[in-house]
């Protein structure tokens, strides 16, 4: 019971500190803006630990953070192998292929007004569909190994990137295009010097949305059949064995990989579109 009391106190203290910081004079300082969510997250973890131990929650329902951490530490080789199989081989290779295909298709579609009118509504429609459902079909075609996972990822990231790129390539206005015309710029010159840079914020929007989709596709596809390695495989078998600490360790890996992947794309966006108003820091 004492631990439960401690959890309530930890919550109160964490909230009080955050309230002081958020309403204090330094609220707009960068370090405070990082500290407040940090403290919040830490408070949640501490409460989780105390409540699980205090209420004797069974390992089968919810393992404590320290148990998960211990499992994470002892099964690093397994987690690393799963990471390589699912994230690097499945998700990343599919992501690169799918995005490249979508970008090339977008450039081709952009050259023809007719194709754009026809393909854009269909692309928008398909982007909203539950595309993970194609996983069983693609697993059947490409086998159980990572190739089928990459194929699912290709299908999943293709449409968001395509739709965003096509929209982005229409972003320049008539004046800017006329200016390029007066410079006697050819199609490709004005494409690389004007329209592609103008489209970059849109393209990166699609690329960033697709990072999460890529991981989702690679993991869910493994529920339909996989070799005996991979994050989706590990999650579904560990759930079957009620080894929930292993499941949580895999989720930690997925969370870290997802955030890192997204962060890397956001960083790249910052480097390539430093001139865009949305990148300005006041």
């Amino acid at each position: 019971m004492m631990l439960v009391g401690l959890a309530v106190i930890a919550w109160g203290v964490g909230w009080w500190v955050n309230a002081q910081l958020a309403n204090g004079p330094l609220a707009h300082h960068r370090s405070v803006q990082l500290a407040v969510p940090g403290i919040f997250g830490l408070t949640l973890l501490v409460m989780w630990e105390l409540l699980v131990r205090g209420l004797d929650v069974s390992l089968v329902i919810l393992p404590a953070p320290t148990v998960i951490l211990a499992r994470f530490g002892t099964s690093l080789p397994i987690l690393w192998a799963d990471f390589m199989q699912t994230i690097v081989k499945g998700a990343l290779s599919g992501y690169v292929l799918g995005c490249a295909a979508a970008l090339l298709t977008a450039v081709a579609v952009d050259r023809s007004d007719f194709l754009r009118r026809g393909l854009l509504p269909i692309g928008n429609f398909v982007a909203a569909l539950p595309i993970v459902g194609t996983a069983p079909i693609l697993v059947m075609w490409f086998g159980f190994d990572w190739h089928s996972k990459a194929a699912v990822v290709v299908v999943m990231v293709f449409f968001p990137v395509l739709v965003n790129t096509v929209a982005g390539l229409r972003e320049t206005d008539q004046m800017q295009r006329d200016l390029m015309q007066t410079y006697a710029a050819g199609y490709w010159q004005s494409f690389f010097k004007l329209r592609l840079p103008a489209a970059l914020p849109f393209i990166f929007n699609g690329l960033k949305v697709s990072t999460t989709l890529a991981l989702v596709g690679a993991i869910v596809a493994e529920f339909f059949g996989s070799p005996t390695v991979g994050m989706g495989f590990r999650i579904s078998t560990s759930v079957g064995q009620l080894a929930l600490d292993m499941v949580w360790a895999e989720i930690v890996v997925a969370a870290l990989a997802g955030s890192a992947f997204y962060g890397a794309m956001a960083k790249l966006e910052g480097l390539l579109t430093f001139w865009h108003p949305s990148q300005r820091r006041t």
């Binding site: 909230w15 955050n18 309230a19 910081l21 958020a22 309403n23 609220a27 803006q33 407040v36 969510p37 403290i39 919040f40 997250g41 990072t211 999460t212 991981l215 989702v216 993991i219 869910v220 529920f223 994050m231 989706g232 999650i235 579904s236 759930v239 499941v247 895999e250 989720i251 997925a254 969370a255 997802g258 955030s259 992947f261 997204y262 962060g263």
Partner: peptide, 23 residues
Amino acid sequence: VMDMSVMPWAIVSQTIPIIALAP
């Protein structure tokens, strides 16, 4: 307080393949 403590996590959580939790 809620804005500063919860909002960053809501945004970060969008980058996590939550579906892995489903099973």
